[in-house]
Design a protein around this nucleic acid. Sequence first.
DNA 1: TTAGGGTTAG
Length: 573
Amino acid sequence: MFVPKLISLLKRSSTLNQAKQIHAHLLLNGLNHLQPLLVHHLLLWNVGNYKSIALYVQLILQHLRNPDSFSWGCTIRFFSQKGQFMEAISLYAQMHRIGLCPNSYAISSALKSCARMEYKLGGVSIHGQVQLYGFTSCVYVQTALLDLYSKVGDMEIARKVFDEMSQRNVVSWNSILSGYLKAGNLVMAQLFFDEIPRKDVISWNSMISGYAKAGNMDHACFLFQQMPERNLASWNTMISGYIDCGSIVSAREIFDVMPVRNSVSWMTMISGYSRSGDVESARKLFDEMNEKDLLSFNAMIACYAQNSKPKEALALLNDMLRPDLNIHPDKMTFASVVSACSQLGNIKYWSSIEPHMNDLDIVLDDHLATALIDLYAKCGSIDKAYELFQGLRKRDLVAYSAMIHGCGINGRSFDAIKLYEQMLGESIRPNLVTYTGLLTAYSHAGLVEEAYLCFNSMKDYGLVPSVDHYGIMVDVLGRAGWLDEAYELIINMPMQPNAGVWGALLLACRLHNHVDLGEIAVQHCIKLESDTAGYCSLLSSIYASVGKWDDAKRLRMGAKGKKLIKVPGCSWI
DNA sequence: TTAGGGTTAG
């Protein structure tokens, strides 16, 4: 077959199998030099699905008799564009190992991949090769380099690269702009923005986003009104800016007047309502959507999970799985669903959903694994939780807090304390949730003085104990029999104690048969909560335990009839 | 090179 005919056949091939046949033909007829063309065609026209093309092209690369930068460069760019950054970087390294000189495609795509993964070390080593192979005047390579340093937060070197560029395009300007904005340096960003010779919509959007993130919506709005053309990202940035500032009403106004909406707009609004606790408005908006997609389902399921409506979250997952919708849940969906199951506190809910996740080939990431740690810990499978915790790529504040709490409620107090120390050793600052778990652990172990020290150390991290932390402390003191100290702590609380705090004291009074404080505690509990039967029966048991049979009987009768009871010497209604 | 979603307490 003539070469021109082969090339035209290749260009018209639309399936991977056709391309493979042509490839076989090339090899049989000694036309190996046409392989780069085949690689280029395969990658450019996406014949077949991504995975099979990727596999086939990699196979070709490994067997090229005369490896060429063009084929390798195209492939590296392909992986980088598909978001397969690890693969792109590893192919680049391989290309380097076999002694091929990279072209600008290869080197800029490898740099982009490092930037997206914030893999500074890899980027720096490619920087050395940029100098070595003489790409110092290629605007694409230099911009990729500049973007890398902006993304990893090294603005000094980013600035140096920018200053030394012989040629710049608007992407170079936008990259340095986004670096300063990411670093929160609005002053420098504004200076650069003013200098951009031909600003595009991305330059404007970046500035708007920077002011919005800094909470300066007035200036963001000023820029939004000034910009010559707006795209969807401009409008969506304004919506999320208002939501971040807590102005859900202004966000809605923007949403209502924008000319075209996409799923990001809908999702941002739904999660805005979710964050302000307005589940009803979120659902109303969700129901108004004509074509619900993965993003909107995820936003609505997350809304239910985050607002303590786990049953509704699971019901919506069920709707989402309807075959006619053809929507496949992803790891975002499952993170919320796991949280919902965890709130229900029974593993049976998750057991019926887990097979779906496995069918969908969902890969556990740290977020999803953390949700599972919490689920297993709450359902008593602490060993399974620990196993997941050990397997995390990076143990962050949330993972530690979930694990500490999990150990706390499962009676593994010393493990909880050890984890807390390990966390501090990794320079992770605890938050209020961490202390809830830790105090729970001390409470279960009956370590009163340690708990007190821990409670007092919260201020070292700038944390102000919440009413729940006081509740746990009352529980710790009370269980250990330090009832007067517990009462004193309640009296000196900087906020109003809730029924939980007084309930903890009441429980302790029952444990140690303390009548006087028990009467006071029950009085407050009844004042704070409508369902009083449990409290009355506790006090009644206290009376019984000290032989005050008449009082005990009277209280029990009262509790049965749900009437309000009067205790001698007390003035509650 | 710009917009958006998930995980920890009670």
